[in-house]
Amino acid sequence: MEIATFEWVRDRFAEVLELDPAEISKNSRFADDLDADSIDLIEVVNSAEHSLGVTMAEEELYDLETVGQLVDAIDRHRAAATDS
């Protein structure tokens, strides 16, 4: 069964940031709400690339502000991979 992207991202961020997954929603802002930085983001994205089979361009990451934006970006790649 395919892994649900939001749940995967949420759980991975919870692990990296040592937070309760329940504290993380799609609307959570990385910097303001989660106190995450670029190193945390890169860790999660690198993990996503290995676990979810996506490859993300660096430029896609640099203006992300919320968990939901990252989930949407990963989903676009997963959909494209399915279509091809």
């Binding site: 995450a36 640099y62 502000e65």
Partner: peptide, 9 residues
């Protein structure tokens, strides 16, 4: 302006 998670901001 750079995003808050811009690497090496």
């Amino acid at each position: 302006s750079l995003g808050p998670l811009f690497p090496n901001r």
